[in-house]
């Protein structure tokens, strides 16, 4: 049984870490981009961002004034039990979100879409989002918070099998250029692409590809991994860099996730996780141990399974 007070305390710490500490994989990716960038203005911008991450950590203040729309991804092992059950878990995550909004402080971004009511705590109807995943075996819970910006850089299009890879490339470029102009997407970004699923799951896959995979990770399908590398290269050859200035750094990494879709369609979504790619992760065990990390490790073989049943033994060997 996982103690609920440890879940809430850990969740508060995660909110703080996500807002303040840029994950090392993104930092390494941006440093690599800064090393090759030769546009005057783009270079200046990347250097300023690198200084900004240091300032945030030194001062323990949020790295960006727009602290996004905090959300939670929760994953647990099959044997996990939580003190108070799922209702207590959701209450703990909502409390942690509200407390950290005041504590860090974060910007209270969340308002009612029509009445613009602001509770000043990033909590409201459907906010924060809490999404779930499960893994065979184990008694632990992974708490993952992502603070993604919420206005620009995302698009969806219904493509068809006849559009092919050429059509996918076209929509990819359209999305990068449209949102890259004037730097609205806050690039260079981790670009997540969702392919397939239904419209809603296509958006979910793409968003997770951007937010739940690290810079340098690859899809387990080697042909998709090759596409990811090619798309990163294409994005960085547009001639556009940070803030939409002339440059060569648009894409810190490109991650693609797929889901089975309608036989007549090829849904595609594009998402940009910005210069403040904020994510923080912790695993809480039944004995109260907490291990912090920045890799959500969401897309396991189990999450990408395509068979009716799942054979557990391979998973247990990895534990």
């Amino acid at each position: 049984m996982i103690p609920i007070d440890i879940i809430q305390k850990t969740a508060e710490t995660l909110m703080d870490k996500a807002a303040i500490e840029i994950p090392q994989d993104y930092l390494d990716g941006l440093q690599a981009a800064a090393d090759v960038e030769d546009g005057d203005l783009s270079s200046f911008v990347l250097q300023a961002m690198l200084e900004n991450y240091e300032a945030a950590k030194e001062d323990r203040r949020a790295m960006c004034g727009d602290t996004g729309t905090p959300r939670w991804y929760v994953k647990m092992g099959n044997e996990t039990q939580i003190e108070g059950g799922p209702i207590a878990l959701e209450a703990a995550l909502r409390r942690a979100t509200a407390n950290a909004t005041n504590g860090v402080p974060l910007r209270p971004n969340r308002v009612h879409p029509l009445w613009r009511t602001d509770h000043d705590n990033n909590v409201g109807i459907g906010a924060p989002e809490i999404e779930y995943g499960y893994e065979p075996g184990g008694e632990w819970i992974d708490l993952i918070t992502v603070h993604k910006g919420g206005l620009f850089g995302t698009d969806y299009r219904m493509l068809f099998p006849s559009d092919g890879i050429e059509g996918i490339k076209r929509f990819y470029l359209d999305s990068l250029v449209a949102f890259g102009k004037r730097g609205l997407a806050c690039q260079p970004a981790i670009i997540g692409i969702g392919l397939g699923g239904c419209k809603d799951t296509c958006m979910v896959l793409g968003k997770r590809a951007a937010c739940l995979r690290t810079v340098g990770s690859e899809n387990s399908d080697p042909k998709i991994a090759a596409l990811e590398r090619e798309f990163k290269e294409i994005g960085n050859s547009i001639g556009m860099g940070a803030m939409g200035f002339v440059g060569k750094s648009m894409v810190v990494d490109c991650n693609i996730e797929v889901g089975y879709c309608h036989t007549g369609g090829m849904q595609m979504s594009v998402h940009a996780f910005c210069l403040s790619s904020r994510r923080a992760v912790a695993r809480v065990f039944a004995d109260g141990r907490v291990e912090y990390r920045t890799d959500p490790d969401w897309f396991t073989d189990y999450q990408r399974r395509e068979t009716v049943d799942w054979d557990a033994p391979a998973m247990e060997a990895a534990e």
Binding site: G167, R170, V177, K181, R182, S237, G239
Partner: peptide
């Protein structure tokens, strides 16, 4: 400033778009 940069970038875009195709729908 942004329009100046956009104009420079637009000159190169036809090259990046080579080999892509407009959506069927």
């Amino acid at each position: 400033l942004f329009e100046r940069e956009n104009a420079k970038i637009a000159e190169n875009l036809h090259r990046v778009y080579e080999g892509t195709r407009p959506a069927t729908l």
